[in-house]
Design a protein around this nucleic acid. Structure first.
Lengths: 191, 191
DNA sequence: AATTTATATGCAATAAGTTGCATAATTAGT
DNA sequence: ACTAATTATGCAACTTATTGCATATAAATT
């Protein structure tokens, strides 16, 4: 007994923030808050999640800090679009962040707290919830596998171009596989 | 193209909070803030992380809400211990939480943002950081495997008693395995 | 014709988590 | 004797994230 799971250097380094994820997206291509929201969902969904409120608020803050600028596009009928682009200070801040060690990402999983406390209730309550989560994870895995199929259909030059995003996609795929494998172990334990 | 990773029912249900993790721990056994900190590290470390500041603050809040009570143990020399125990309202709140659907846990991994943005810097910067994270994950996996060894050495009655915590441990083990497998893929890609 | 979904943006209040500081005694190691 | 680690608690300031509300148009569906 007595080996602590969280020990030593586990939480060192600079904190990650939404800010740098946004800078990364704007570095490649300018866009509005709504554009960024879509990019988060479509391109970073397997390793970063952000709500529209969070994004709009962060953009406002980053603008006040001079990391980004915007041009207002008055559209026919539709609400105005603020198209943000990264500035030199924004680019520098991103570069500096990339070179600074980052913390290991924190895990806080409520479902496992429930499982841990499962003796307090009829275990079917927990089983049911795990089954629901399993559905969600299965859907996510399938989405990720679709992305992978798209990637594999590319020619070798395009593959090279998208290799880094692809590696992040692999993280999503392997992570979901592991989750589902675990869920199966749990199911087998309970049956 | 166009399959969104985050879609539909991904973020529904009640939010998990530190509160219920603490209630879960106090449900089994009373303890001080420091005791709880240790229990988080030793027993929930693979699925929940909390700092001492967070725990003390949360305990104060939960006490003001009537979910927990404490008795002050004046010790010889050492600072006073506030030994908290769960109350009836606290137990009820925990039970209600367990039966309420929980959100899928959010993933926000800064390391993957860096990898995604890896084209902006010399890739060795990213490789080096991934290698460091790999060390941390390896250490964590080894810690988890020690726990598993302890569990497997138990007799069948004890095994039954600790089966739910063991299943949460399995999540940690499978998760770390998946992480390391991914890191290997990344390394192989870059070599 | 009516409803829903998507586009497009934002504020306010609250909750949750981090960082840095502060105190104070005991125990273990050098 | 000195130093470091462990035990034990907490405040204050700040950052980050969530929840709920609010507005308004266009396009697609029923």
């Amino acid at each position: 007994m007595g080996h602590a799971a969280t020990s030593g250097t586990r939480f060192n380094g600079t904190n990650m923030s939404l800010k740098h994820a946004i800078l990364t997206l704007l570095e490649t291509e300018q866009g509005s808050g709504y554009d960024l929201l879509k990019r988060f969902k479509e391109r970073l969904g397997f390793f970063w999640n952000a709500s529209h409120q969070q994004i709009y608020l962060q953009l406002k803050k980053m603008h006040s800090e001079g990391l980004i600028e915007f041009e207002t596009q008055t559209q026919q009928g539709k609400p105005d679009r603020k198209v943000y682009h990264i500035t030199k200070p924004g680019h520098d801040a991103l570069m500096q962040w990339i070179e600074t060690p980052i913390k290991i990402s924190k895990v806080n999983d409520g479902l496992l707290v429930k499982l841990y406390a499962g003796h307090l209730v009829d275990i079917s309550v927990i089983q049911k919830e795990i089954a629901e989560h399993k559905d969600m994870h299965t859907r996510m895995l399938n989405t990720f596998l679709e992305f992978e199929k798209d990637f594999k259909a590319l020619n070798s030059e395009q593959k090279k171009q998208f290799s880094l995003p692809y590696l992040t996609l692999r993280r999503g795929i392997l992570g979901e596989h592991a989750w589902l494998q675990w869920a199966q172990e749990v199911e087998e334990y309970f049956k």
